[in-house]
Structures are given as C-alpha cells and as structure tokens.
C-alpha cells in the first residue's frame, strides 16, 4: 500500500514523463524506425509504469492518478506488444503463385457453395426467360441488354465493318468503369458474409439469374457464337473473380456461425481473416485483368476478330485459371501460420 502519496508521485513522476515523451515521439512520426536501445528503454519504462498502475489502485487520489497511468500504460502497451508482433512481410509473387491458390483450395467448401448459388441462379434465370419471355426486361434490367440479340449482333458487326473503334474512343474509361463496378460487387459479396452468408448467396444468385437469362436470350435467338465470343474472353476471368468474392463472404459467414469449430468467435474470425483477404485480393487481380479484356477484346466482333479466336482465348484462359487454382502452391506446402 502506498502510504506517502506525495513521495510516490514525486519519485515516480519523472519515469512517467519520460515514457510520455518517448511515446509522443513515436506517435508523432509513424514512419520512424525505432532503434533497439529505444525499444529496450520503452519496454523497461512500460513495465515500471504498469507496476505503478497496479500500485495506484491503492492511492487516495485513485481516479486522477489512475486515469493518467491507465492512459499512459494503454499507449505503451499497444506499442510494446505491436513491436513484438510484427507481421510477416508480404511477398506479392509468392502470394499470387502459392498462397492465393492454397487459400482457394483450403476454403473449397465455401467456393463450391458460392459456385452452386451462382449456378442455381443461371439455371433459374434461363428457365424463367424460357417460361416467360415477356419478363425479359425484369430479368435483365440493363439498357444495353434491352435490344433483341439478333438486332444487337447486326448492329455490332455493322459498326465493326464501318471501322468503329471503341478502343480509340472510350475503351479506357469503359474498362475503368467495369473494373470499379465489378470490384464493388465482389467486395459487397464478401461483406454480406456478415449477414451469416444469406446476403452473399442472394447476391450470387441474382448475378447468376441475369447471366442465365442473357445466355438463354442469345441462344434462343440463334446467336450462340456471338454470345460465346462476347462473354468467354472476359467472363472466364470475371465470373471466377466474383465467385472468389462470394467465397470470401461465405468463409466469413462460416467463421461467424462456427460451423463445427469450437473455438471462440473472435478466434475463428482471426483465423479466417488472412484467407478472406487473400480471396478478395485474388478477385481484385482477376477483375483488373477481366476489365482490360472486356474493353479491349470482348467488344470487338467479326469481321475484326473471328468468334472462333475469341472463344479459343476464353477457353484457354479458363483452363489456365483452373490449373493455377488447382495446382498453384502445391510444391510450397502450407504457409507457416
């Protein structure tokens, strides 16, 4: 018990002031590197002030001195333990080649569920359009899809013959718009994992419905080659990207729900966090690639680009992507936690 309050304050105050000074210096410059001697001194001061805080519980002026010491210890604690828990350095190439595919495979159940929800949406959308063609505008509520497929193909090919050059006019801004929009959809699919996955599944289903309706619309109109040539080059990358976003959302939902995992919710979320970020990072990378393809390849049709070539590019991409996700990082083993 501290009996002599004044002596205690006078004796310990210089230490508190030194810790405060050192913390201020570090906090004022977040980019500063802290030397080993400074770290040692900070740690030493932190331990001494923490001990003072324990003693201060006995103080007569408990509230004032304790508040001061608590604020000081809280700042020092955050800094001292952060220095001990420095995160591993991010290596982009290793992440892309090994860690991302590993995360996709490690969370395969969530990936399969996301693909199933999207696939169910495709089937539903297609079936709905077949059952009720008049619902076209409701199933595909986008201006550029309102034209009849045959008319659209005619118009697009006529523009190509006339030397229409989208790349020279607005391909860049079009690609940027697609990129931003698709990244938003992927982020939302992941964030909706906080609705225990219901929002994620609904979003995937809805996107599937639109795609299914578009596919059936073009196939029924006899424009399958145009459809495949238009969608495959970018869709073979864009759709997996959105599925990765959905997979991230379902991983989040699984961590929230527990799903047979007996750890505490916060521990499950902490364990899932790196995989969620990896999956979203993967989605972002694929979407950058897809936006470029959509703006600079998908929008060019016959006679400028033969549909067969575009379909072949799309199929090769699909195979490459599948191989990357299936085999990437197998040689590296599991990354250290």
């Amino acid at each position: 018990m501290i009996v002599d309050l004044r002596r205690f304050l006078e004796r310990r105050r210089p230490l508190w002031e030194e810790l405060d000074r050192r913390l201020r210096a570090v906090e004022a410059d977040p980019f500063a590197r802290i030397g080993l001697d400074d770290i040692r001194r900070l740690h030493d001061l932190y331990e001494q002030v923490a001990a003072d805080l324990a003693d201060a519980r006995e103080l007569a002026v408990r509230t004032e001195v304790r508040d001061h010491l608590e604020a000081l210890v809280a700042r020092a604690y955050a800094l001292v333990y952060a220095l001990e828990e420095t995160p591993a350095r991010f290596r982009p190439l290793r992440w892309l080649a090994a860690e991302l595919p590993q995360a996709v495979r490690r969370r395969a159940r969530a990936g399969v569920t996301a693909a199933a929800a999207f696939g169910a949406g495709v089937l539903l959308g297609g079936a709905a359009l077949l059952a009720d063609p008049s619902a076209r505008s409701h199933l595909m509520p986008f201006d550029h899809l309102q034209l009849h497929p045959a008319e659209r193909v005619l118009a697009e090919e006529r523009q190509m013959r006339a030397g229409g050059d989208l790349a020279g006019e607005q391909a860049g801004s079009f690609a940027a718009m697609l990129l931003v929009n698709n990244v938003r959809v992927s982020l939302l699919a992941a964030a909706l994992g906080m609705t225990f996955g219901a929002g994620t599944l609904a979003l995937l289903l809805y996107n599937g419905v639109v795609l299914g309706a578009v596919c059936v619309d073009f196939v029924v109109a006899g424009q399958t080659a145009f459809l495949a040539g238009w969608l495959l080059p970018h869709g073979s990358v864009e759709i997996p990207a959105i599925l990765l976003g959905g997979q991230a959302g379902l991983v989040l939902a699984s961590a929230l729900l527990g799903d047979g995992d007996r750890r505490r919710r916060v521990d499950r979320l902490a364990a899932a966090g790196p995989d969620i970020l990896s999956l979203l990072g993967g989605a972002a990378v694929l979407l950058v690639w897809a936006a470029g393809l959509e703006a600079f390849l998908s929008q060019y049709h016959e006679p400028i680009l033969p549909y067969g070539l575009k379909i072949a590019i799309g199929l090769m991409q699909t195979a490459g992507l599948a191989a990357w996700l299936a085999f990437g990082g197998r040689w590296a083993g599991r990354p250290a936690p």
């Binding site: 304050l9 105050r13 001195v65 001061h68 608590e70 604020a71």
Partner: peptide
Amino acid sequence: PVPLPPVEHL
C-alpha cells in the same frame, strides 16, 4: 490526454 493532477497543491 489525461494530465497528471497538480500534485503541488498537496
């Protein structure tokens, strides 16, 4: 910030 009480008053 929580300033230390003015101990000199004691």
